[in-house]
Nucleic acid binder design. Structure first.
Lengths: 153, 153
DNA sequence: TGTATTTACGCCGCCCGTAAGTATT
DNA sequence: AATACTTACGGGCGGCGTAAATACA
């Protein structure tokens, strides 16, 4: 049982629609379908009833959802409290980009869904990006001084 | 952030000893050390203070542990309730084995730590194992009818 | 025939183990 | 010198995507 499975399950339990959930979760529809089956096997219990081409949360699913909400909620709260007491969130992200400008509105909208507390400071077509102060950038050129770091959400 | 990381963290937070926790969690000591660092990076906060060759849970760690306990507890409760209402747990596992008999005591002890509600029915050196009724077996011979299935805990 | 889920199959990244390195007592 | 944690590196497994199959309206 993994956290990603629980997040996927929680979302799918609410929509009762794998295709829709997959799109909103940014994974492929078969991947989500399989993850749910895997979770059901792990628990030894079916969480959804398959009725024709639709799925419907059943009793077991509803019971489990209740606990999943508690668990995921606690972890989200924990993260928030850590942010609060560590005071490391500036609240503002400085973003520089010279490509993909037409994608930014959707990207920002998506991000604000997940992190409503963050505000952005945007820099488009910065003159000399190597000297610019940004938290991250989107560019087609090779960029200079600081190293890159991989993050997941 | 993954569930395994949280379980590892919870255990290590209590022992404040990576080597000991690694042994009890059945993973290598470097693996556990790395997982904790990974979790800290994910949260953006150090959870332990490194003092010489010892580690000590710090403020952030204590705060986060509180939420981890809630989350993992909820998931354990959810599993239990699903077992209750589905009524699929027989309460007794039938185990057949013709090798590794000297390992069984420790294995059983280990398992009972995790699942105290389960009782065992042991069959050593079964005459014709292919016909035997067991939930699982440990053997050096190839066994017959039913397929094998992979499970993680 | 279009829509929704499931199965098949392969790739890539991550978890974990072994080995070596570093630091403290 | 012994103990405990960290870094380096490689292998194996699982998550996820694309493609194809199945099933219902």
């Amino acid at each position: 049982m993994e956290l990603s499975q629980l997040k996927y399950f929680r979302h799918t339990a609410r929509t009762e629609n794998i295709t829709k959930s997959a799109a909103e979760l940014h994974i492929s529809q078969p991947a989500l379908s399989k993850m749910i089956v895997t979770l059901e096997k792990d628990l030894g219990v079916k969480l959804f009833d398959r009725e024709g081409k639709h799925i419907k949360l059943n009793n077991h699913g509803a019971v489990f959802l209740k606990y999943v909400d508690i668990a995921l909620g606690a972890l989200e709260d924990g993260r928030k409290e850590l942010e609060d007491i560590s005071g490391q969130t500036s609240g503002t992200l400085h973003v520089s980009f010279d490509v993909a400008s037409q994608l930014m509105p959707d990207l920002l909208k998506e991000f604000r869904d997940r992190h409503p507390e963050v505000t952005f400071h945007l820099l488009q077509h910065d003159r000399n990006p190597t000297q610019a102060k940004f938290d991250f950038c989107i560019t087609s050129s090779l960029v200079g001084p600081s190293g890159t770091e991989k993050k997941s959400c």
